[in-house]
Write a protein that binds this DNA or RNA. Structure first.
Lengths: 238, 238
DNA sequence: CCATTTCGATACGGCACCGTCTCGTATCGA
DNA sequence: TCGATACGAGACGGTGCCGTATCGAAATGG
């Protein structure tokens, strides 16, 4: 994708590579060294090419030969470290959601992924390029996956159809993301994914649906009687 | 309270201040300048005493006279910028939760608070002192407040008693936090707090409990018998 | 009036890093 | 064998920041 060149480049169709080829081992050492530093909690601001070169045991030139600067390198590392998305069982929306959340939970437990995740979120405000790369390669696909699961759930009668799937997606992912990303000391015990999904489903499942727990009376949720007159009452704050 | 403590000595009980007193304006200029830089997205790693002094229009010595270093200053800025917690209406658990989430939403919309919040989260991994200060002065009290609201809700029959309040708290706060803190481009439209709380409550409310307004059907959520209650359904979603 | 302390400004030596460039060596294609 | 390129190492001048010190000018109390 964008800027792909900077990445593990060397994809030149017709290239009469004349001299010594670039060492793949050096490539890996650089990325690995960067990840190691990131894992140790070194913020992006304290990362320097010289320090990475020292850690990786390579010369500075070897890095500048491949990447334009620290930022481009970081984007590549971001893409490299990202684990593959979870495999969805496909048996039901509920099971798929559990799988998605369970994957997030494990990811939060992995220090490598976790630390880099944090740094990425930290820097995205100051560096639109990093945020752009991270969003398009990591967040967007995962989010899209969640949406599809939810929409399928709506078709199959596992999820109320009167709700905005964007919101529902955040209702499911939010709690786990907060624990995995925002709070380093949070509880991420086994079974958390199921608990979240099932607790939420108890209210999200449409009236007559079978599955885990029985649902009860029908409910009509969002049909405002008269928006005009009840519009405020909660909206004012000094 | 703002300033004048934590960082440096300052609070000496009986001090025969002999010479020229420290200017309160200088104090404010320093904190204000730091906030301005933080707002602009400058990460903590790129913040320097010299840059702060330049921005604030003060001498470096004026800063070193008050704070031990960049970290101590940042902790003080953190405390200063943090807005007061929300006032809870106390009419019901549901209303209190809406107030809590609404406060988070507004906070997410305020660029100042938001940017500093992000930076704080970014740096806490690498700097335990900052995380400690931020956690004890900001996160812990707010979290405690949420817990109390939920426990009171359990006592009053507004919330199922078979659920872990820690988890429930994350179920409520997670979605809003994700949008406010993690995703800079997220949707934070008016009425989001109500939508989250009510959608979740539809499953969190114990079986036989009456709706907010009381009376009638257990689960008929939005049959607005009470105008104060129908505010939740105001969504104006694009 | 004078000692004391703060003010902005700035000079100081030191340090880490920047990005480029040059070594001597290693490794490829021709 | 030879030209080209990559390798680690590190020299190079430049930049920005560090934390301290010093300056003359305010501002306070005794």
């Amino acid at each position: 994708m964008t800027s792909a060149d900077s990445g593990t480049a060397a994809e030149s169709p017709a290239q009469p590579v004349r001299g010594r080829p670039r060492s793949e081992a050096v490539e890996q050492a650089i990325v690995e060294g960067t990840m190691k530093l990131l894992e140790e909690g070194v913020p992006l601001g304290e990362l320097s090419i010289e320090r990475i070169a020292r850690t990786a045991g390579v010369g500075k030139a070897a890095i500048y030969r491949r990447w334009k600067g620290k930022e481009a390198l970081f984007v590549d590392v971001l893409r490299t470290v990202e684990p593959d998305g979870p495999e969805l069982p496909g048996t039901s929306m509920r099971d798929d959601l559990v799988a998605l959340l369970e994957w997030q939970r494990r990811r939060g437990l992995a220090s490598r992924s976790s630390a880099i995740l944090r740094t990425a979120h930290a820097q995205m405000k100051s560096s639109p390029r990093i945020w752009e790369a991270y969003h398009s390669t990591v967040i967007a696909p995962r989010r899209k996956l969640g949406m599809e699961v939810l929409r399928r759930g709506q078709r199959d009668g596992e999820l109320r159809t009167d709700l905005d799937v964007e919101l529902v997606n955040d209702l499911f992912m939010g709690p786990m993301l907060v624990r995995a990303v925002l709070r380093p000391d949070a509880d991420l015990t086994e079974g958390l994914a199921q608990r979240i999904v099932d607790t939420l489903l108890d209210g999200l499942r449409p009236p007559g649906a079978p599955s885990v727990g029985g649902a009860a009376a029908p409910r009509s949720v969002s049909s405002p009687a008269d928006p005009a007159e009840c519009a405020r009452s909660v909206t004012e704050h000094p």
